Simulated assay, not measured.
Amino acid sequence: MTIPCKGETFLLCKERVIYWEAKKTLIISDLHIGKAAFFRKSGIQVPTKVGRTDLERLSECLTLFDTEVLLVTGDMFHNYMNSDVIAFKHWREQYPGLQIKLVMGNHDGLKPEEYEALGIEVYLKELIYGPFRFVHDQPDTFDQYYNISGHIHPGITLFGKARQQLRLPCFFFGKTCAILPAFSVFTGLSMLKPTEEDEVYAITPSGVIAV
């Protein structure tokens, strides 16, 4: 689904990404590389294929779109270096020409030299890429830039005629801030209660729909 946003055009994809064609930029949030390995180390059995599936989906998006920049609005990684991050390193070697820009999230715990070794540009607080400010969490103050964030893993509940309820990840566009869905499938949902002024796009298995 293609939508206008502050004079620019975004393509919202069911793979939980935004493609900004004018900048050849793929925008995602909350990839949480290493989360599955982190849980396994804590004794919680999580299949190793979880992380691989996310990277495979990301590869499909890079193939689908003419991408020069991958922009991540936080929580690209989940805590520290582990086997899943090593797998990402091998994945990264397939895309030597891809610029990766990361706005740090609360779970991004790698060392500065590790980000550098992975070819990732790190922004500690925000990245201004006019007319947008890319941040991990919604800011408390607002100015001329429209904020694009992640962090909360937004979801929306759709109701059927027979009281059925369906919980889906979504893209949220409010007056001052947009919130991206978590890219990783290994995340929960924070259910939103949008106002009439907000624009919400639910992500279904077949595509993105306005709700």
Score class of each variant (00 low, 15 high):
203 I>M: 03
104 M>Y: 06
46 V>R: 08
85 V>C: 02
13 C>E: 12
107 H>W: 02
27 I>G: 03
162 A>F: 13
196 E>I: 12
47 P>W: 06
139 P>K: 12
205 P>Y: 09
88 F>T: 06
114 E>C: 09
73 T>S: 08
41 K>R: 06
49 K>W: 15
180 L>S: 09
154 P>V: 04
78 H>D: 13
168 L>V: 11
160 G>N: 04
60 E>H: 15
176 T>C: 12
110 L>R: 04
198 D>A: 08
185 V>A: 15
108 D>I: 06
177 C>K: 09
198 D>R: 07
44 I>D: 05
77 F>S: 01
7 G>H: 00
51 G>P: 03
22 A>R: 00
189 L>K: 02
119 G>S: 08
52 R>S: 15
52 R>K: 15
59 S>D: 12
13 C>K: 09
49 K>P: 05
128 I>K: 07
118 L>F: 13
45 Q>N: 14
201 Y>W: 11
111 K>L: 15
105 G>S: 10
38 F>S: 12
166 L>R: 09
164 Q>W: 05
9 T>Y: 00
31 L>A: 02
174 G>W: 07
101 K>G: 11
104 M>P: 06
126 E>S: 13
111 K>N: 15
59 S>Q: 11
17 V>D: 01
117 A>V: 13
107 H>N: 08
159 F>R: 13
50 V>P: 08
181 P>Q: 13
84 D>V: 07
80 Y>T: 15
101 K>W: 15
38 F>L: 08
13 C>S: 13
196 E>T: 15
178 A>L: 09
126 E>R: 11
39 F>S: 04
12 L>W: 00
24 K>D: 01
106 N>W: 14
133 R>Y: 08
51 G>T: 11
115 Y>Q: 04
74 G>H: 13
185 V>S: 15
64 L>C: 12
105 G>N: 10
8 E>H: 00
125 K>Q: 13
206 S>F: 04
18 I>C: 00
99 Q>S: 08
38 F>H: 15
29 S>E: 10
168 L>D: 08
157 T>P: 03
135 V>S: 06
193 K>D: 02
126 E>N: 11
109 G>Y: 00
174 G>Y: 07
172 F>R: 02
183 F>P: 11
22 A>E: 01
